[in-house]
């Protein structure tokens, strides 16, 4: 079994959607093509614990918080204990908050390549995180921040120039599953 959140359709005839905790706890990911007959209740704490037995500590930590916030306190407590056990097995165990900051770092970094997100906000979040937690100031993270700053900086390229074409590539998008996308999303590449 996997565990997921079932979200009822907003209106009649709409689609029921399923969201699961992303690998390493970095947000939620929609699960597609769920067969309704394969879905069962998750009222039992031990059933859920069995379903997440092989998950990593970060996944368990994020899921524990979500259960805590949604009133599943017994499940949340068990998940949190399991997360700490997983963390304890790391060669150099980080604190719970350090793990949480890493989750946030990867989450906000991932947002920069999601469609329709506000990269200036992503940058603000990442800069704040790096400010608060100096362990995140690795050379590669710093390089990423500098590049993101240049991505969100006001564009100076003149339309029609090579520089403008390169700037437009920051909005290029290709469906990872190969489904056709809107022509505009690939126009910068073909130009």
């Amino acid at each position: 079994y996997d565990v997921a959140y079932r979200v009822p359709a907003a209106k009649s005839g709409g689609r029921v959607r399923y969201w699961e905790v992303e690998y390493r706890g970095v947000g939620l990911r929609e699960r597609e093509y769920v067969e309704p007959a394969a879905v069962e209740g998750a009222e039992s704490t031990s059933d859920v614990m069995r379903a997440v037995a092989f998950r990593d500590g970060d996944y368990l930590l994020a899921f524990a918080v979500q259960c805590q916030e949604r009133g599943r306190f017994d499940l949340a407590t068990r998940l949190y204990a399991q997360a700490r056990e997983e963390f304890g097995e790391d060669e150099k165990p980080l604190t719970v908050f350090e793990n949480l900051h890493l989750i946030a770092w990867v989450y906000w970094r991932k947002q920069t390549t999601e469609r329709g997100t506000d990269r200036a906000q992503d940058l603000r979040r990442l800069l704040e995180l790096a400010e608060e937690d100096p362990s995140l100031r690795t050379p590669s993270n710093d390089r990423f921040l500098r590049r993101l700053e240049r991505t969100v900086a006001p564009r100076k390229s003149k339309p029609g120039t090579v520089e403008a074409l390169i700037d437009e590539l920051t909005e290029y998008w290709d469906d990872p599953l190969g489904f056709p996308q809107k022509p505009a999303e690939r126009a910068s590449y073909w130009k």
């Binding site: 079994y1 996997d2 565990v3 997921a4 959140y5 079932r6 979200v7 009822p8 399923y18 969201w19 947000g27 939620l28 699960r31 769920v34 394969a38 879905v39 069962e40 209740g41 998750a42 059933d47 859920v48 379903a51 930590l61 994020a62 524990a64 918080v65 979500q66 259960c67 805590q68 916030e69 949604r70 599943r72 949340a76 407590t77 949190y80 700490r84 604190t95 719970v96 908050f97 949480l100 900051h101 989750i103 946030a104 989450y107 906000w108 979040r125 995180l129």
Partner: peptide, 29 residues
């Protein structure tokens, strides 16, 4: 180690997402 309520507070402060309030936890076989 911090209590879970404090971890949850930090999780939200960091802008990490929660499932919709009306979502129901299920298992998928």
């Amino acid at each position: 180690h911090p209590v879970l309520a404090d971890v949850a507070k930090e999780y939200k402060r960091l802008g990490l997402p929660l499932p919709p309030a009306h979502a129901e936890l299920v298992r998928i076989n």
